[in-house]
Amino acid sequence: MHFKDVQATLIRSLTTLKGAISLITNPSNTTSVYELEDGLRYDKATQLSIEFITSQPEIKPLLTERYLVDDPDLDTLLNYPQNSLGYRYASYLKASGFDPHFYRDIKVEDDTSYLFLRRRQTHDIWHIVTGLGTDVASEVGLKAFELAQTRSPLSALLIAGALVRTLFESPEELGYLLDRIAVGYRMGFQAKPFLAQKWEEDWEKSIEQWREELNVQVPPAYTP
């Protein structure tokens, strides 16, 4: 192995380690998530995940097209019916004070970088359609959904990190966390591929219609 290869491997490893440590310290730090994902980009587990995603016939057209869109205008989306994806997405971002371009950009140069960017771009849409909230346990539940859909090593690491943190810092919340993980994984396994959807071309479609078409079963409330 050449020096440059060793150097690149070391940098990726340090980036991954930095992201992992930051997440354990502050699980709400999205920058750490991106650092962790970028560090895992060339790992075998990531490549196997990409192979799994690209093997799905429904996703291939978007891969070929490299389907991406500009950030939507939230005020325009608020003119859609209140049960539509567009309205729900815009009202959620407005209420939360989020920017539609919340995600870190990545240069699209292959299937891996495209899928990374598309997943980042549609993260909040996944929240809305699945009905999984944004508290820590529900965020981890969405990662379990994502794991079932993509076999992403990042998702697996985030789930593992959340379990470790909960065991040591708030063990009384373990039942709720485990419930959201189980619910999310089961939903992801049953649902049609979210990465195959051109959400932005059907903002006016109702959440109920999206869920019916994609076979999404909204999770029940947690009962201890």
Rank of each mutant, 00 (worst) to 15 (best):
S113T: 11
P61M: 06
L132E: 04
E35F: 05
N215L: 12
G86N: 02
L154W: 11
K205R: 13
H127N: 08
I106D: 00
L115S: 01
A162R: 04
F116Q: 05
Y92I: 04
D110Q: 01
T112Q: 00
G97Y: 11
L78I: 03
P27Y: 10
L158E: 12
P220Y: 10
I159C: 03
T76E: 14
E204P: 03
A148G: 10
A20H: 09
H127L: 11
A160M: 09
F3C: 09
L214M: 15
P100S: 13
L163N: 08
V33W: 09
T122D: 02
F3A: 11
L147H: 15
S152P: 03
S32N: 10
F145Y: 15
G39V: 14
L17G: 07
R186G: 06
Y42W: 12
F194C: 02
N215Q: 13
P100V: 09
R180T: 08
T46Y: 02
P224L: 14
V33N: 06
G175I: 09
K44N: 10
T150A: 00
V140E: 12
T9H: 10
K60I: 12
A221L: 15
E213Y: 08
L36R: 05
A95L: 08
F194E: 01
F116Y: 12
F3R: 08
Y89C: 06
R118A: 00
S155W: 03
W210H: 05
E200D: 14
L93S: 04
K143A: 03
L214Q: 11
A156R: 08
L62S: 05
F189H: 15
Y176G: 07
E200Y: 11
E37H: 02
L14F: 11
S22F: 13
E65H: 10
P100D: 07
L23M: 15
K198Y: 08
I50W: 00
D5K: 05
I53R: 00
T150L: 00
K107S: 00
G184S: 10
E58R: 01
V6Y: 12
A144R: 03
L78Y: 02
P61V: 02
Y103G: 00
L147M: 15
F145M: 15
G133C: 05
L158A: 04
L62M: 05
E146K: 05
D202H: 14
S155L: 07
H123G: 03
F145P: 13
G39N: 13
Y92L: 09
P27E: 14
L177C: 11
L14G: 07
V136P: 07
L74Y: 04
L93N: 06
Y67E: 03
F168K: 10
E37M: 04
T9N: 14
Y34A: 02
K18V: 08
Y176C: 08
L157F: 08
Q56N: 12
A90R: 07
V218L: 15
P193N: 04
G175L: 09
V164N: 02
V129E: 08
Y222A: 08
L14M: 13
H2N: 15
I21Y: 07
W210P: 01
T223P: 02
T16Y: 07
